[in-house]
Design a protein around this nucleic acid. Structure first.
Lengths: 253, 253
DNA sequence: GGGGCTGTGTAACGCCCTTCACAGACCGCG
DNA sequence: CGCGGTCTGTGAAGGGCGTTACACAGCCCC
């Protein structure tokens, strides 16, 4: 327990002189919906720019790993362009996709902040342009700029809320509701201009901790009910309201 | 959405009178294994004292709620004596126990830090002595004492790691492995001098997101294999190694 | 054009777990 | 000392979902 502290740069002396601003601005947290949690690891855009100001752009190819679960952690990444998949693996190698991060998301913040091994694996789904800071640089900038420390705390809280919600979903809801939730989210984030969500059914299974077959069955059921359209490599939401209803109404009382 | 509160089981006449020795905090960190995450929301003891210095002791009776999911959040609590259960509820009212916090644990830190509604419900299992700070006081003290902000960041990271792990467990493992994990943990934290873990099988079910019947069946199987002993209101681990083995080996490759 | 390769559709089978139902054990309390 | 309430034990029934096993349709590339 004391070891984290040993690993924490002794140079950190966060100066919260601008205390008045704490917690006043959370407008960026959930612009789209008031009751939903932010699903992406994002901070206020201006804070993002401030955090990574002066960083050189790094290019990664599709399929390249940023880091792997259990790795020693020492960098925090910011996404400028591209999509990065965050996933965790079971001892047996089964994959569970936790999230897909987009432009202006932060990646690897936990490991960078507490210096312990990576809790997840990050892999570029597309060609990516990233910026990054070392642990030392991160703390240096947080110290120089107290509002950054505040932003990081808010980010950590938001992620905690999101993961806790996922845990509850996993425990309480069946595949159908979890799938509906994911689709509603993905539809708002990675759908193209025509509304198509480019994701395979296998990948959806990895999101849910379920099999492709189960996903397929559910999806075909919805298609027959005119809720979604399906094509190879993707799907499109037709009746978003019905989906939301499925996501919300599948409780067990 | 606020119906949880209405549906909140009023049946919680927990007979935790016998839980007196939970507070004997032997295990700050998992003494058993180094790679395991801290399960309790604790910061460095000296930081804890610093954070709450000068706070008046508040007494709560067993069964009393500190706060309820969806409540507006404005306080952070520190446990001086007693045990507090942290749980989340499904829309249908089903309960999932996230954790049980002991002496020197922090409670409600997320809501206090980001000012958004409570993500969980906190209820005193025993008579408790707590200290607490308002959101304003919390930030005031963090500002005056930067090391506190650092400690809070570490705490948030630790909890994120823990919850992520739980999410993975929930997705990857069956009841047997999850139950074994919990028992190994509980055995190190709340066992009495004779090694008895005072917890009912129903409560174990709430920990796992499973039914009492499933827990009962698994437990009886283990008893027949000399791994544990069972008595009313509790159980004792006989073969800890076998339990750990079950907890670890139930992967799916 | 013909092999892979990946993504989709579908069905049979079976296990794990929940649900329901009930009975006995133990406990505190009037 | 009996009575209600909680905890435990057990079994039948049912379903959700994983497992396995194919069939087929696009797509890439030699």
């Amino acid at each position: 327990m004391d070891e984290h502290r040993a690993l924490m740069p002794s140079t950190l002396a966060v100066n919260f002189s601008s205390y008045g601003n704490w917690g006043t601005d959370m407008a960026f947290a959930g612009a789209n919906d008031r009751d939903d949690l932010p699903r992406l690891a994002r901070i206020d855009p201006s804070q993002f720019d401030l955090l990574f100001s002066g960083c050189k752009l790094e290019r990664y190819a599709a399929g390249q790993h940023l880091f792997v679960q259990e790795d020693a952690a020492d960098r925090i990444y910011g996404v400028m362009k591209g999509t990065v998949e965050i996933s965790i693996y079971s001892p047996g190698g089964q994959k569970l996709v936790a999230n897909i991060e987009l432009s202006r998301s932060l990646i690897g913040e936990i490991g960078a902040l507490d210096g312990r091994p990576r809790t997840a694996t990050a892999i570029c789904l597309t060609a990516c342009e990233l910026v990054s800071l070392s642990r030392t640089q991160l703390f240096d900038r947080m110290e120089k700029n107290p509002s950054l420390a505040r932003a990081m705390i808010e980010l950590l809280c938001a992620r905690l809320r999101w993961v806790s919600g996922e845990l509850g979903d996993q425990a309480f809801f069946g595949i159908e509701a979890r799938l509906a939730k994911r689709l509603v989210f993905l539809g708002g984030v990675i759908a193209d201009a025509a509304g198509w969500i480019p994701i395979s059914q296998s990948e959806l299974g990895e999101f849910l901790g379920a099999t492709r077959e189960s996903v397929n069955k559910t999806l075909n059921d919805w298609r027959s009910r005119q809720i979604i359209a399906i094509k190879r490599g993707g799907l499109r939401i037709i009746d978003a309201r019905a989906l939301s209803h499925i996501a919300a109404s599948q409780d067990d009382d």
